[in-house]
Amino acid sequence: MSKREIILPSSFLVSDENVQSNLATYKIGSNVYSSVVGLFERSEDSGVRVVTLRGKYYPQVGDEVIGIITKDSIFSWSVDINSFVEAILPVSYAIKKKRRSFSGSITKLLTINDIVYAQIVDFDRFNPPILTLRKKGLGKITSGYLITITPGKIPRVIGKNHSMIKMIKEKLDLNLIVGKNGRIVALTNDFQKIKILEEVIQKIDNEAHVPGLTDRVKNLLESKISK
């Protein structure tokens, strides 16, 4: 089992030439320090891992995210992705490949407050995150229920080999879209199911780093559904 401890900015983690500094850590010489409030996990197989427990989503190319359209301009939309920068969805990335061009007002495609499930295809310090909808499974989400949790805990919602998310879907008999940026959309309008799901997600958010989470979530689900 891995060891976990609470760390704070400037907490010393390890001394190791080979560990690269990243977002959550920085290096002075070969010493690695934390730059966040979080959990430090040291295990034999995974080495050094810092789990951030606070903060916004940090965009990574390849991530699938759930965004909210905030603005439209001539050739693109601005999209809130729960991060420190707004993402851009160019019109050309929002239309199907077959349609070479699009004429008319782009608001016919997407307007402010629409929700999209999109993938980040480009991001660096000079360009905002660029989104695309041109991939299977991506696109506008037209109905459902939006839930938000700390982005650092999304991996726990998914679980090892999708075990957690699979179980939730099966037990509640609904479909879920999970964005890496801490947003989850339940594709249902069943009030009862939504309330149970909210409780489950809340539990994961609170207890994300306590061992045996899957079992506890299973118990919670079963007790709620049987009622």
């Binding site: 900015p9 400037s10 977002l23 730059s35 409030v37 903060g55």
Partner: peptide
């Protein structure tokens, strides 16, 4: 700042 999860060097 630490509470906001901002990446920082030290308190």
């Amino acid at each position: 700042l630490a509470d906001a999860g901002v990446f920082m060097y030290d308190l």
